[in-house]
Nucleic acid binder design. Structure first.
Lengths: 147, 147
DNA sequence: GCTTACGATCTGCGCCCGTACACGATATGT
DNA sequence: ACATATCGTGTACGGGCGCAGATCGTAAGC
C-alpha cells in the first residue's frame, strides 16, 4: 500500500490523550473568565444552550447538554433568581416549564462568550491561517454535539 | 481592518465545549478497547508514560501524567503484580523506585495502542488528507503535554 | 373515571477524584 | 549528630457527578 510519509504523525500521542489534555487546559483557562462574570460552568453551559434555542422542557435541556436532569435544577434556580432565564409553566401542559433567556441573560451570555473567545484567540494566534481554519473545520466535524 | 470572511467560523460553539465533547467521545470509544485487554484507563496511561521513557520516581511519573501521587499507587501495584512493570528500589537512593516496563508490558502496551490507533483511524477516515494532517499538527502544538 | 405515562423535584447511594495529613525510611547539608 | 527535606504509602475528608427511586402534579388513552 502507499503508506504516508513517515512524518512525525507516526509516533504521536494518542488522540484521546491530546484532546483530553487540551480540553482540560481550555476549561482551566475558562474558569477565571466565568468567575469574573460570576457564572458557574454549568450556568454558562445552560445559557449557551438556551442562547441557541429556547427549550420546552428541562429534560430536553438536560439531554441537549449531556447532563443529568436532576443536576440542572439548582443551576436553573440560580439563573432564574438572577433573572437571567425565564422558567414559565407552559399553559398548554402545566407539567413543563418553558425555558428561555431574558434580555439580561442574553446580554450576559454574549459578554462571557466574547471574553472566552478572546482567550481562545490568544491560544490560536500563533497558527497559520490555513492550519487554524482546518483545525476548526475538523473540530466542528468531529464534535459529537455539533451536528 | 481586514476581517476574515464571515465564514461559518464566526458562530461556532466554544472551543472548550467542542474539544471537551470530542474528548469525552474519544474516551468513551477507548473504554471497550481497554476492557478487551483488561487494562484500566490509568493503567494504560501509566504504560504509555513508561513506554516513552522509564521513570526514576513515582512522584515524577505522577507529575508527568498529571495525576496525584497517591492515585497511581494502586495502579502500579496491579501493573507490577501482573508483571507489566518493574518497580525496583534504586540502589543509589533507596527511597525511590525505578519504574520501567517489562517485555510483557511493552508488548501489551503496543497491542492496546495499535487497537486504539485503529479506532482513531476510523474516526479520521473521512477527512481530507490535508485537513487531517493540519488537525493533528495543530493538536500536537496546542497539546500542553506534548512539548 | 381509571390507568398509564410524563415532567419536575428531592433524596440518598456509590464512585472517582483532588487535597491534606501522618508516618516510616532514607538522603543531604551543616 | 542533628535538622531538614524527599519518597513511598496509607488514610480520611469533601466535592462533584451519575444513577435509581419516591413523590407530586398533570396529561392522555380507554
Amino acid at each position: 500500500m502507499f503508506s504516508a510519509v513517515p512524518g512525525p504523525e507516526s509516533d504521536r500521542p494518542d488522540l484521546a490523550a491530546m484532546v483530553a489534555r487540551l480540553a482540560r487546559a481550555l476549561v482551566t483557562a475558562e474558569r477565571p473568565v466565568l468567575a469574573a462574570h460570576d457564572v458557574s460552568m454549568w450556568g454558562y453551559i445552560v445559557l449557551s444552550a438556551l442562547a441557541d434555542e429556547p427549550m420546552r422542557t428541562q429534560a430536553a435541556l438536560a439531554r441537549a447538554i449531556g447532563a443529568d436532569k436532576t443536576r440542572i435544577i439548582a443551576t436553573l434556580d440560580e439563573l432564574q433568581e438572577r433573572a437571567l432565564i425565564e422558567r414559565e409553566p407552559d399553559p398548554d401542559d402545566r407539567r413543563v416549564r418553558l425555558l428561555r433567556l431574558t434580555g439580561t441573560g442574553r446580554h450576559l451570555h454574549a459578554a462571557v462568550r466574547a471574553d472566552i473567545r478572546a482567550g481562545e484567540e490568544r491560544l490560536l494566534a500563533g497558527l497559520a491561517g490555513a492550519d487554524r481554519s482546518a483545525f476548526l473545520r475538523v473540530l466542528r466535524r468531529l464534535d459529537p454535539g455539533g451536528g
